[in-house]
């Protein structure tokens, strides 16, 4: 069986404690929560941290809180918790769509929301979903807290705005003003249940009272979209009536502006097609949920 190399282990009791440990041990220290990205990499010895700081028992990092204008999701919230939260399903159904197709129930029992986005795997479903939803990330560091929008959080494959001496506290998903019709949806094409995405897309649509698109977020996963979003497609739709033609145009733009890479999940041509096809479908789903169609 594949096994990790040696490392030291410390359990953090608080955010402050975790940050102190990170500062003291420098970049060779890594945070661990669910461990479902890090431990496999350590087994393959692609990651060989000298110290693991276990944040599973840091109380401030848990919990889902829903206020009038946002959903706050602690970095340590397990995927299953997010999926079990009915209010999240109502306010941001895309998150439930995405969670349902992430790995499998056992992995979701252990894996955390914060861990998923901080891993910044180009195929991470939540990255596409949170980016589409224009979530923001609260990050704690030696200098205190700061907030980074998801569009700006991902600096490249496996690279994020979270510095080596920082930790992600929570993600906050803004909710539209009351009274506005809104809907969101996420779809994924995979070779098999539990597999990483061949391609996936998420859309969040808010309709103005006149039926035009007040705001739209389109996230793309595993399709080589910059920062997981299809901004050109969003720009085409914003302010427009979401007609089939407008949706088709958005799909075309999403396909045109992504840069997928070929792998065993599919060639570039196919993935580019998926970007368009899935963008169209999730826009239609989101509009249906918004009652816009």
């Amino acid at each position: 069986m594949q096994l990790p190399a040696h490392f030291e282990y410390q359990r953090a009791r608080s955010v402050e404690h975790a940050l102190a440990l990170l500062s003291r041990h420098g970049p060779e220290a890594r945070l661990i929560a669910g461990g479902h990205s890090l431990i496999p990499m350590m087994k393959l010895r692609l990651a060989q941290p000298e110290l693991l700081i276990d944040i599973n028992e840091v109380p401030e990092l848990g919990g889902i809180e829903i206020t009038e204008d946002e959903i706050r999701i602690g970095a340590l919230v397990r995927h299953t918790q997010l999926l079990d939260c009915a209010e999240v399903g109502r306010s941001a159904p895309m998150l439930h769509d995405a969670e349902r197709v992430i790995a499998d129930p056992l992995v979701r029992n252990r894996g955390t929301v914060g861990g998923s986005v901080c891993q910044a795997d180009p195929s991470e479903d939540l990255s596409g979903a949170f980016s589409a939803l224009r979530a923001v990330a609260d990050i704690a560091g030696p200098a205190g807290e700061r907030t980074v929008p998801m569009r700006g959080f991902f600096h490249g494959p496996y690279q994020t705005a979270v510095g080596p001496d920082e930790l992600l506290l929570r993600l906050r998903v803004p909710l539209p003003a009351p009274g506005l019709r809104t809907g969101s949806a996420y779809r994924k094409v995979s070779r098999r249940a539990g597999d990483w995405a061949v391609g996936a897309a998420g859309a969040a649509v808010t309709l103005a009272p006149d039926g035009t698109v007040a705001e739209v977020g389109i996230g793309l996963t595993a399709l080589g979209a910059r920062e997981f979003v299809a901004t050109e497609a969003e720009d085409l739709l914003r302010g427009q009536r979401p007609t089939p033609e407008a949706i088709d145009a958005a799909g075309r733009a999403a396909a045109q502006h992504c840069e997928p890479v070929a792998d065993q999940r599919g060639p570039v041509e196919y993935k580019r097609h998926l970007a368009g096809e899935l963008t169209r479908r999730v826009l239609r789903d989101a509009l249906a949920r918004a009652g816009g169609r």
Binding site: S190, V198, R265, G266, P267, E269, Y270, H273
Partner: peptide, 20 residues
């Protein structure tokens, strides 16, 4: 796979024993 079915529908099925 989805990619193979889609490619086959376009008349260009993949060589599945090699890297895509």
């Amino acid at each position: 796979t989805p990619a193979q079915v889609w490619s086959a529908m376009r008349g260009r099925p993949l060589r599945t024993d090699l890297a895509v």
